[in-house]
Nucleic acid binder design. Structure first.
Length: 579
DNA sequence: AAAAAAG
């Protein structure tokens, strides 16, 4: 590895420790870590960042234990040990290895970004390696996680641990061809199966996977707090009914938060005699307590210009890598459309990810952003939890998140494993107080942005130029995405009516303002009407008879964008660039 | 209709 320009000052210890963990402290500014652990892509030398001295902070989640110690004590077999590309264990890993290898049930509390995946995969696989190789139809380890991308991330690590062995891992997620999965399940080993709940149930019902789940020895529920959400419950019950019963399997449950709801579930799925492991001590402040966080309250109409200014400023720093969260998939999509169309950001790659993209596009975007040295990802809450994008310098959030918890999870994409990070929350005036007055929010070190005044000052040149750029770009954009964003906005804020003490008319007025003045939606007929909604949509939102809505009869040749009557199937967006 | 997740 030849030293890039500027690397000569790098402390030599950075390079002398090839086995220092990378994923565990992604922002460790060692060269190797900067190039991203999952990357195989060649990086132009000229783009390599200047390494900074290693911060002691980055070692925060590391323990003094080494994987080599576990190997020396006979805890890890040679083959597995050799496939672990890290030298030091993280704290969670050190604590979970022995109990899991001994076959105990574990309730683990650990934030993501602390090496949690390795903490359960390595010991589970170690157990597997100690037994005779099972017949090919056996699924020894079943992992359930709440998003597709998280499953793929886990699968990647399992593949690494299985490299060159007879064992195989497969993922079973929605959005990809089910027949291919069915065939692979039939023809190839799946010693570790990693699944989202919905698709796993689909396979139970339609691929006769149920009986094979009875061969599961270790059952892992990752991001368990999220898996307990309403929408997952039915699937989880079906899965629990098929998988090996709890007294004859090992269950590992991981959750970032531990509240009564989780404890109740733990009681149901874990054996009475399980081990509780936590790495969150009083001394070790939670990430969200140490990350620098600012908020800006402004009008809806100024949000985009403020965001543009923030990105512009960040673009002048060496390696900006930012995630911008929006509350709706359509909101993230239109923000991506807006900012990718702005000429200032030629050198700053833009990415988008949300449920309205095809799964193929989602995977491409996530992979590209993971390995990117800089860029901005416009995201819905798909990536809010557990996703590991290396070296995120800042997380911006636009609009009230659905809960303080969600705010904290999103923020956790930056400052991973003790690294530096920064958060900005942009709120519209009508939503600010309700969120900021919540107890959980008040307990955060979240402060007014020191430059809030200037950033939102209509008479400043910086604001004026940003606003002008936003207006121009929206004006040039097609109306379909705007109509979709309008509908999503209405649907999202519909849930806040009570909290905001809004009447239905207030909701409609605000949504119309959003479409007409913010997005600059113009009806194809040249009128000043807001985007059309189907009677059915209006009915489902409980807005029948509210003035200001543009209700249209369903048309047989309907342009989609205002209903179309589909439920959850994501109409794949055609536009896609490989970034 | 509103993150996500089955189509």
């Amino acid at each position: 590895m030849s030293a890039p320009p500027g690397a000569s000052q790098a402390p030599s210890r950075n390079r002398r420790r090839p086995r220092r963990p990378q994923q565990q402290h992604p922002a460790a500014p060692s060269l190797a870590a900067r190039i991203a652990p999952l990357s195989t892509a060649a990086t132009p030398t000229s783009e390599l960042p200047t390494p900074e001295p290693e911060s002691t902070d980055n070692a925060k989640y590391l323990s003094n234990a080494k994987f080599a110690d576990f190997y020396a004590r006979g805890v890890l077999t040679k083959a597995l040990f050799e496939r672990i590309p890290f030298e030091y264990c993280t704290e969670v890993q050190e604590k979970t290895f022995l109990p899991i290898i001994e076959g105990k049930d574990v309730f683990g509390q650990a934030k993501t970004g602390t090496g949690k995946t390795i903490a359960f995969l390595v010991p589970a696989i170690e157990q597997l390696a100690r037994r005779p190789v099972p017949p090919p139809e056996v699924i020894s380890i079943l992992v359930i996680a709440p998003t597709r991308e998280l499953c793929l991330q886990i699968e990647k690590e399992a593949k690494m641990l299985f490299a060159g062995s007879v064992y195989r891992t497969q993922s079973v997620i929605g959005g990809v061809n089910i027949k291919v999965q069915r065939r692979d399940l039939l023809n190839e080993r799946s010693d570790v199966l990693i699944a989202t709940p919905g698709r796993l149930v689909d396979h139970i019902e339609n691929s006769n996977l149920g009986p094979r789940l009875k061969t599961v020895q270790t059952f892992v529920m990752d991001e368990a707090d999220r898996l307990l959400d309403e929408g997952f419950q039915k699937s989880l019950i079906q899965i629990a009914n098929q998988v090996t019963p709890k007294d004859r399997r090992q269950t590992l449950l991981f959750s970032a938060t531990v509240d009564n709801k989780i404890r109740d579930i733990a009681r149901v799925v874990l054996k009475d005699k399980h081990e509780f492991i936590t790495t969150i001590s009083d001394a070790d402040e939670a990430t969200h307590q140490h990350v620098h966080q600012d908020y800006i309250v402004t009008s809806l109409a100024k949000e985009d210009a403020v965001m543009l200014t923030l990105i512009r400023r960040a673009a002048r720093t060496p390696f900006p890598k930012i995630i911008v969260f929006y509350s709706t998939a359509r909101g993230a999509a239109i923000a991506y459309d807006l900012f990718k169309g702005i000429p200032d950001f030629q050198d700053l790659p833009m990415f988008e990810i949300h449920s309205r993209l095809s799964q193929g596009a989602r995977i491409k975007q996530a992979d590209a952003f993971k390995t990117a040295l800089k860029g901005v990802l416009f995201s819905s809450d798909v990536t809010a939890r557990g996703m590991d994008f290396p070296n995120i310098t800042a997380v911006y959030q636009v609009g009230s998140p659905s809960s303080p918890e969600q705010y904290i999870h999103r923020l956790g994409r930056t400052a991973r494993a003790g690294a530096e990070g920064y958060g900005v929350l942009i709120l519209a005036d009508f939503e600010a107080n309700v969120l900021l007055n919540k107890k959980e929010m008040r307990e955060l070190p979240l402060k007014p942005h020191p430059e809030a005044q200037h950033l939102t000052d209509e008479s400043s040149d910086e604001f004026k130029s940003a606003k002008e750029m936003v207006v121009q770009t929206y004006d040039a954009m097609d109306s379909v995405a705007k109509a979709q964003a309008y509908q999503a906005f209405m649907g999202y804020y519909n849930g806040f009516q009570k909290a905001f003490r809004w009447s239905k008319e207030d909701l409609v007025r605000t949504a119309n303002h959003y479409a007409l003045d913010v997005l600059r939606y113009r009806s194809p007929d040249g009128s000043n009407n807001p985007p059309p909604l189907l009677p059915k949509t209006v009915g489902m939102m409980g807005l029948k008879g509210v003035v200001g809505l543009n209700i249209v009869r369903p048309q047989p040749d309907a342009q989609q964008g205002y209903g179309g009557g589909r439920s959850s199937a994501p109409p794949p967006k055609k536009r896609q660039r490989a970034a």
